[in-house]
Amino acid sequence: MCLAIPGKVIEIREENGLKMGTVDISGALTKACLEYVPEIAIGQYTIVHAGFALKIIDEEEAAESLKLWDELIKSGAFDVNDEPTDDR
């Protein structure tokens, strides 16, 4: 119950006066209420919980933080020289 799953909005409509949409969650099409993300557009990603879209995923922020990690990995900043890296 407590999962918040990312998905892509593929349709927006109105039902009973509420903004509703269809969200593609890993291929499964799910109905979600979009009232709390009124500015959301088709093609944007959101996280869905209890049938409601909670927040639009900030794609720019996501790309930036991934880039930062990957640069750190490449530059060797995460390499551990004074400790074994095997699993315990």
């Binding site: 990312p6 890993s26 996501a62 995460f78 390499d79 551990v80 004074d82 890296t85």
Partner: peptide
């Protein structure tokens, strides 16, 4: 799936684990 697979990437996870061990 976007916003899932990137965050299950073993190379990134390993790097973060190494960093935790170091810190």
């Amino acid at each position: 799936m976007k916003f899932i697979d990137e965050y299950r990437d073993p190379a990134r996870a390993r790097a973060l684990l190494d960093r935790i061990r170091l810190v």
